[in-house]
Design a protein around this nucleic acid. Structure first.
Length: 883
RNA sequence: GGGCGAUUAGCUCAGAGGGAGAGCACUUGCCUUACAAGCAAGGGGUCAGUGGUUCGAUCCCACUAUCGCCCACCA
């Protein structure tokens, strides 16, 4: 190692790839079960195999990596288990698009060949995201990487399905579901995104059979009227009481339908009369079932009107809407049209307007599963961080509806149910069936649908650890320690993992859920493909390095809050890395003659100070990490490295390195190396690459910083006295620098510095460490108890009971100095008045804690001394001949 | 309609019941043998508003305003 290998500007490109490969080759990420060690386990939220790393992933995985690396260094048996999700719709859509470019559809290939094709696609492109995670520095155990459709996970899915089925918790029924005409599949309630849309509310007249009366209904979806089987009004609505039990004629279809009364109807909305289309509206469906109304499907799965729509059959649903309106208008039945803003369900994948329709689907009965999941969180067996997300979770589960789990796709876990063509019985089976278990006929056919992707991801925390087999991993690492994820996924995933874990493992899947916010663009908008405002993490990594990206994502943010992406902030992180690099370069450049066995006999004040500060920082970082305050932990390190280690300690140590005795030099080297090394270790979870690079170039024990023991705060090295003394010295130096700057003293010019220190202890300290002041404030320091005569040509400052004079013959503009001191005096007086007021307040003195009162008294005392000193000085200056 | 979050320096954001902070931007002076991706010194804020609790509130409580997010079966 040497300067030649450490250029003055840190270049992450030369460093990052090298170390990652080395770590992975040496299996430092790999965790074997070590029963005598405390386990720490995170299962990675599996990104979609189709996915590419975006800022959300970068944040999520940085947080996980920080926690994992920290725990690993802290001696835990740390496992971070990675994997990918098969992402039913998304992946199938990708492959279908690929086929389309070849002029083919999945039907041309047939199910089997199509699935083969998807697997090929997965083998080819599926590891893109995992290689991108490697670029980020993710220290996950790739030897244990899983896929939601691999053999083990698939077995877990079947096992779960069968068990739930046998317990009657999975059922198949005709029910109103959300249908995406574009994806041609059902989607679950949470996959429907409600967007506010400016629309029209159409008022349509439904005449009575005798043509003498009519009732007007309001609807935003006039085409659904073709499937109407009733009109509903509120039971107490006097306007319509006479019609309840009677009939009206459904226009266009000329069908006679009943007028019914139901509490659901809001008498003040629209006309107070609602058309009821049980087959195409969730509410109408409920009402329909209550009143045993016929369910007529007029819209087909492709969004085209069915034969039930009579003359409108074959029309697209939007086209049909226009035609219906036109026809109604012609017949004078369209009473009026109003503008209405309301929420319309859209498919979260393709943004198509979702069509509610009745369909035979598979459902999970949620109430019995939700209940234990609610209890577990209420009892604190799983804790949300930040706590406020508990409520979001509970609200959802407390109002849960059954979960539609069947999807009309090919890519996914096929529903393990076979129907017998002979006897008609449906049989669920863990193993593929060739014959009907009921009648023995060999004419069985498997349900064509697959399961919702989230069905398998809900099992992730235990399926990846080997379940349903009782593996040592499962036993050791379950329940996992913490789940790290975005808040957008609490319903989709977190809740489902919790109820699945409770159901099948009898225990929550994780002790804590650490929820983070979204990464927004610089303007505070969500990053999205359609807006084109996303920032590509890989480009950032190439330009600034993964460490900078990670540091930027972690700092200046508080748990659960969103984070805006600013390049300025990224530059700040990059500059910090460079600062650390150069501080380390300084240390390494000055290691000549370093002997690791050397034990210093006498530490300088600055040594004791920086060591003490380091111990405090080590304690703070660890405490913040325990509280998931990663931003604070990183912030503490930033300040320590930049403000204390670089700006003060390195500057203070230079004279000893350059001109000190061999012993002084060795002592300085010893402290530099050890504090720097410890700091690198504390920083390693945040910035793994640069810390490894530097650590390897410092004298060290062990193979890698990754496995270096986490620095434990050693309280016996905390030295309050040294910290206090340094604080005083630093403020004296700052005061002198400030005077020099204000008086425009050229930096190169050495100044004369007189310190008047009345207090014995402080005078001794100042005397002992006067070289600090003379070196860092560039001046010749004289220390006295009191001054025979104040120099008139001098600038003055008062700090911590010490009066500083910087005689500046010819540089002092007396009137200007008077003005400056008067400003100073005014400030001091303000403080004195404020503190006097406070201490005169009997309530304060009586009720405030004694130490607070004492602190305030001390402050007042200091300010009074300062007030007096400055006032005296002013008096002298005002009498001086220069005036 | 409910719930949650935010409101602090020009910008982006931390923060704690007891003297308002950081980064960036800005001003001034420095290429000082680790770093100009830097050093030193500065300027800049009624901590959204109103009321309450308290000896003391920017922090805790209530309400209000503005912005954002989530949930919700009023067509």
């Amino acid at each position: 190692m040497g300067i030649t290998k450490m250029p003055p500007a840190y270049d992450p490109q030369k460093v990052e790839g090298k170390w990652y490969r080395w770590w992975e080759e040496h299996k430092y990420f790999h965790a074997e079960v070590e029963p005598d060690k405390e386990p720490f386990c995170i299962v990675m939220p599996p990104p979609n195999v189709t996915g590419e790393l975006h800022m959300g992933h970068a944040l999520d995985n940085t947080l996980q990596d920080v926690l994992t690396r920290w725990r690993r260094m802290s001696g835990y048996n740390a496992l971070w288990l990675p994997g990918t999700d098969h992402a039913g719709i998304a992946t199938q859509a990708k492959v279908e698009a690929q086929l389309a470019r070849e002029g083919l559809s999945k039907y041309d290939l047939g199910r089997e060949a199509f699935l083969k094709r998807v697997w090929t696609w997965k083998e080819t492109y599926g590891n893109r995201i995992t290689s991108q995670l490697r670029r980020l520095g993710a220290s996950c155990d790739w030897d244990r990487e899983r896929f939601t459709m691999d053999e083990g996970c698939s077995e877990a899915v079947r096992e779960v399905f069968i068990r739930l089925y046998e317990q009657g918790l999975i059922y198949r029924d005709d029910y109103i579901v959300n249908w995406c005409p574009h994806c041609a599949t059902t989607i679950s309630d949470i996959e429907v995104e409600h967007l506010d849309v400016q629309a029209q509310l159409y008022f349509i007249k439904y005449p009575t059979p005798d043509g003498r009366d009519f009732v007007t209904v309001a609807t935003t979806r006039p085409e659904t009227m073709l499937g109407d089987t009733a009109v509903a009004v509120h039971p107490k609505d006097k306007r319509y009481r006479h019609l309840v039990g009677k009939e009206v004629v459904l226009p266009l279809m000329n069908r006679v339908i009943p007028v019914i009364a139901d509490d659901y109807v809001d008498p003040v909305f629209g006309t107070g009369a609602v058309k009821i289309t049980p087959a195409h509206d969730p509410n109408d469906f409920e009402i329909g079932r209550r009143h045993k109304l016929p369910e007529i499907r007029v819209i087909g799965t492709n969004g085209v009107m069915t034969t039930e729509a009579g003359p409108y059959a074959g029309m697209d649903r939007w086209e049909c809407r226009q035609k219906v309106l036109a026809d109604l208008g012609e017949q004078g039945l369209l009473a009026r049209i109003e503008d209405l803003q309301h929420a319309v369900g859209h498919c979260y994948r393709c943004n198509t307007v979702v069509e509610p329709m009745i369909s035979k689907q598979w459902f999970v009965r949620m109430k019995p599963l939700a209940e234990p999941a609610i209890r577990a969180v209420k009892e604190g067996r799983t804790r949300f961080v930040p706590e406020r997300f508990t409520k979001v979770y509970l609200n959802w589960l407390e109002n849960i509806r059954d979960w539609c789990i069947s999807r009309q796709l090919w890519w996914g876990h096929r529903i393990p149910v076979w129907y017998c063509r002979e006897c008609g019985k449906a049989s669920a089976s863990k193993d593929d069936l060739a014959a009907c278990p009921n009648c023995g006929a060999d004419k069985v056919v498997q349900d064509p649908d697959v399961l919702d992707t989230w069905f398998s991801s809900g099992l992730w925390p235990f399926s990846t650890l080997g379940w349903p087999k009782e593996t040592p991993e499962l036993k050791h690492f379950y329940p996992t320690s913490v789940l790290v994820t975005g808040r957008d996924i609490i319903f989709f995933w977190v809740a489902r993992m919790i109820f699945s874990g409770l159901k099948f493992m009898g225990e929550v899947p994780f002790r804590e859920v650490f929820i983070h916010g979204l990464v927004l663009d610089a303007l505070g908008r969500k990053m999205s493909k359609s807006l084109g405002n996303g920032v590509d993490p890989l480009e950032v990594i190439e330009k600034y390095g993964a460490d900078s990206l990670r540091f930027m994502l972690v700092t200046g943010n508080t748990p659960g809050n969103d984070l805006r992406f600013h390049f300025e902030k990224l530059e700040g992180a990059r500059n910090f890395a460079n600062k650390l690099w150069n501080a380390s370069r300084f240390v390494i450049m000055n290691l000549e003659g370093y002997d690791p066995r050397f034990q210093p006999q006498r530490l300088d004040l600055s040594d004791r100070w920086i060591v003490s500060r380091f111990q405090q920082v080590a304690g703070a970082v660890d405490a913040f990490l325990r509280d998931y305050e990663l931003g604070e932990a990183a912030g503490v390190l930033y300040e320590f490295i930049w403000d204390e280690f670089c700006d003060w300690y390195i500057e203070l140590v230079k004279p000893r390195l350059y001109r000190g005795t061999p012993e002084e030099r060795a002592t300085a080297q010893h402290v530099l190396v050890n504090v720097l090394k410890g700091t690198l270790e504390l920083l390693h979870p945040f910035m793994p690459f640069i810390t490894e690079e530097i650590w390897q170039n410092l004298p060290h024990e062990g193979e890698t910083i990754m496995l270096a023991p986490w620095p434990k705060a050693r309280v016996e090295q905390v030295d309050r006295g040294a910290e206090e003394d340094m604080r005083l010295i630093i403020s004296v130096i700052r005061a002198i620098r400030s005077l020099r700057a204000e008086m425009n003293v050229p930096p190169a010019r050495r100044a004369e510095i007189i310190l008047v220190v009345p207090e014995d202890g402080k005078r001794e300290t100042m005397g002992h460490w006067r070289s600090y002041i003379s070196d860092l404030a560039s001046g010749d320091v004289e220390i006295t108890r009191d001054l025979a005569a104040e120099p008139s040509q001098a600038a003055q400052a008062v700090v911590g009971g010490i009066t500083i004079y910087v005689p500046l013959e010819g540089l002092i503009d007396i009137p200007q100095e008077i003005a400056r001191l008067e400003r100073e005096l005014a400030n001091v007086q303000k403080e004195v008045v404020r503190l006097e007021g406070k201490l005169d307040n009997e309530g304060f003195v009586a009720k405030a804690p004694a130490d607070v009162v004492e602190k305030e008294r001390q402050k007042l005392e200091d300010y009074r001394i300062k007030q007096e000193t400055v006032a005296q000085r002013l008096a002298i200056l005002k009498k001086s001949p220069a005036m």
